[in-house]
Write a protein that binds this DNA or RNA. Structure first.
Lengths: 210, 210
DNA sequence: CCATGAAATGAGAGTAGCTCTCAAAAGATG
DNA sequence: CATCTTTTGAGAGCTACTCTCATTTCATGG
């Protein structure tokens, strides 16, 4: 749902021979660090996993780890959904009701996210519940997603993306959706996440009234 | 808007002679640490201010600082609004429309918060904008406020406070209000905060439609 | 008022996240 | 192959944060 660093879209490095050896190595290193981190966290838990261990398993130096990710939490939470979601939002017809668009795009994003690596996305939301630092960082990255949403809403409605109204609206959406994914993780990932999101959207659209 | 530690309500220590010397000293120390921190942050900025400096100015040891506040950010963000807001919410007549209640209570909370120490609450929201770590922690503490809101909403509507619907609704409210205060700080605290909150409430109630 | 017990404090050592610098290694370029 | 640029590794250094233990400070019953 967020990305601070401009992660290239999810294709394996081999798919892009047009990139120089340098670029390909960078992508490899990045993935190696992430893979190593996920594995270690699965084995020992988040706090018990140190940067040194991550560096060792990824076969890079600790300095390099920090060159690729500003903080330890970022190794875990970074994803590349935002640009995809933005594209999808823009691709919808302009006269479609906003909520219909939103539901459609969210459903698609969830499909995409779960398909790519189900276990990883579960681990991620699990960490969000268990590790305060990760949750914090995750929430902060929401504001990036929020800005993107503001942009999309502004384009759609002709409002100023920086206006209080648009920003409040976007953040309330994101807050609600965030809570839905927390709920999902807290309840041990029971049921379909997409169902929860549908219910969350109902609340966001109509309030608690009904 | 939040409190992780159970700060006693805002009365000067002298007002409560029924407390033992020990308790009164604890309150004094807590306030000394906070005062020292605010002063140093105003002088040098947040990052440049170290725990050692804070300890020195508050005339306690660094260990003591950590005994009173789990993290450096907590020294800055902790406040004691949650219980007050909860009480106010409960004090409203049960048949009053929910949004009316909410607007009333928010207005009151803002009055209270600004009156107590205007400059401090400005500094706080300023830090929220400027220092990522503070913003993160602030956002996380929102979930505490969120739980409180769930409780209040549940009591009012007879729903389960743990239900997805209530939780999503609460967090969307909080996300929106949070954004309003960020907006206020980003625009240099122009205008009345309460006006911004009114506008935010309009959006939260009716969406962007009108 | 003093003795005993409990709580708060200070001192200090230790861990780990994160930053910065500089020299060595590896890829790009002509 | 030579040169230039980018990436990496090594290591020192800072600081938030934790833990332990001895010392001091307050509370309490006699």
């Amino acid at each position: 749902m967020n990305t601070m660093t401009a992660t290239p879209s999810p294709f394996s490095p081999a798919d892009r021979p047009q990139l120089g050896l340098r670029e390909r190595k960078k992508i490899k290193t990045r993935e190696a660090i992430r893979t190593a981190t996920y594995a270690l966290v699965k084995e020992q838990g988040y706090d018990a996993t140190t940067i040194e261990q991550i560096a060792e398993r990824a076969e890079v130096s600790p300095s390099t780890v920090f060159r690729y990710f500003p903080t330890k939490e970022d190794i875990v939470i970074t994803d590349e959904f935002d640009p995809i979601i933005l594209d999808e939002l823009r691709a919808r017809p302009a006269d479609e009701p906003w909520m219909v668009t939103l539901r459609y795009v969210m459903r698609k994003a969830i499909q995409f996210g779960l398909k790519e690596d189900e276990e990883t996305s579960r681990l991620r939301s699990h960490l969000m519940v268990q590790v305060p630092a990760v949750r914090s960082r995750m929430m902060e990255s929401m504001s990036v997603t929020g800005n993107m949403l503001c942009q999309a809403i502004a384009e759609r409605t002709g409002r100023d993306p920086e206006s209080l109204e648009v920003r409040v609206y976007a953040m309330s959406l994101i807050g609600g959706l965030m809570e839905a994914s927390l709920y999902w993780a807290e309840s041990g990932h029971q049921g379909e996440f997409s169902d929860l999101v549908e219910r969350a959207m109902d609340v966001l659209e109509h309030g608690l009234s009904e």
